[in-house]
Amino acid sequence: MAEPRRSAQVSRWLCGGAALSALLLLQGSAWAQTGGAAATPGTLPVLIGTGAGGTNYSVPIQTLLFFTALSFLPAILLMMTGFTRIVIVLSLLRQALGTQSAPPNQVVIGLSLFLTFFVMGPTLDRVYQDAYVPYTTNAISFEQALSRGEAPVRQFMLKQTRQSDFALFARLAKLDPSVTAETAPIRVLVPAFVTSELKSAFQIGFMIFIPFLVIDIVVASVLMSLGMMMLSPVLVALPFKLMLFVLADGWNLLIGSLAASFAT
């Protein structure tokens, strides 16, 4: 029973990610609201009807929009999830340890990706249940599904966005002072969220560097006092860094702290 349950959960996350990509596509596709309303003979039909539920696009157009939205998945992964913070912290940890390629980039990116799925799991589940499932049963229109899918993502980003960062981009975008972070457009909220994520990642990285920097200083001082000028302090300090990290159960502490840092 555990395997089908895990498979269903992965499917929900993938469908939620696809819905997120379509959300970003909709923000920049105002052309679809006006273009193609009057199709000429011999051309691909864009609309198949309009009504109280909104505009319904033909299947070829929906397919085109879907595959176009898939190209936005890397940008969404980087800019609208916790991937940025996680991958920067893991990269800074590798630099602090002094290991050039251990763990390798593939492991860092893979661990960051699956930790992002873990952190974003509740958000993707809400997108799947509130937007994707009703849309597949024709209970809501495509625009309504995107609007419902936007709410959980916006709520996640708002929890991680500093007010000062949002105020900066709201001022640059010349938004009305009455516009709050809850009602601001995505084009303003996303850069504010990314800026806050970069700040949080470097703050965590600073705390990671401190104990390893102390080891480097102590090793360099001991080698200098012994007159071993030609021996690289980095080479001597590396085993002590690894020993400290393993004895302190560093991976457990770091990954647990990273996951907990999003639960605010």
Rank of each mutant, 00 (worst) to 15 (best):
G205Q: 06
A38E: 15
P122L: 00
L26A: 11
E150W: 02
G227Q: 10
L231P: 08
G250E: 04
S112L: 07
A260T: 13
A22I: 02
I204S: 03
E150F: 08
M120L: 05
P233L: 02
F72H: 11
R12C: 04
W13K: 08
Y128I: 03
G54S: 06
S164G: 10
P233W: 13
T180P: 14
F118R: 02
L25Q: 05
G121Y: 08
T123Y: 07
I61V: 15
I208F: 00
A102E: 09
P103W: 04
A248L: 12
Q106M: 07
V246S: 14
S91Q: 07
L238A: 14
L73V: 11
T63D: 08
I217R: 12
G28F: 12
R85N: 01
A170Q: 11
I186W: 04
N138D: 07
F245M: 13
L77A: 07
A139F: 02
W13I: 15
K199Q: 09
L90P: 13
G35W: 15
M1H: 06
M230Y: 02
A96L: 05
R171V: 00
L20A: 11
R85Q: 08
A52Q: 05
G98T: 01
S11G: 07
A19I: 04
Q106I: 15
S71E: 15
L64Q: 05
L175W: 12
R187V: 11
T116Y: 09
L175C: 04
Q160R: 11
K241G: 01
F166R: 05
E143V: 12
R126M: 07
G17D: 04
V107I: 11
S11Q: 08
T40A: 09
P211W: 14
I255L: 03
T63C: 14
N138C: 01
V218L: 12
D165R: 02
T84S: 13
Q95L: 15
R126V: 07
E182Y: 09
G16V: 06
A259I: 08
I109C: 03
M230H: 09
T136M: 10
V214A: 10
F72N: 15
T123H: 00
D125G: 05
F66K: 10
Y135V: 05
P185K: 02
S101W: 13
I88F: 10
F245I: 03
F212A: 09
L175V: 12
F118H: 03
R85G: 04
S196P: 02
L92P: 05
L158D: 06
A32N: 07
A201P: 05
V59D: 13
L92D: 03
L242H: 09
I186R: 13
L172E: 10
T183Q: 04
F240C: 02
Q144D: 07
Q9W: 11
S178L: 15
S58K: 10
I217C: 05
A8I: 01
S101M: 14
L92G: 04
G16E: 06
T40R: 06
I48F: 11
K241N: 01
P239A: 01
L235M: 13
P185Q: 06
M228V: 11
L258K: 07
G98R: 10
L77V: 12
G53W: 03
T43V: 10
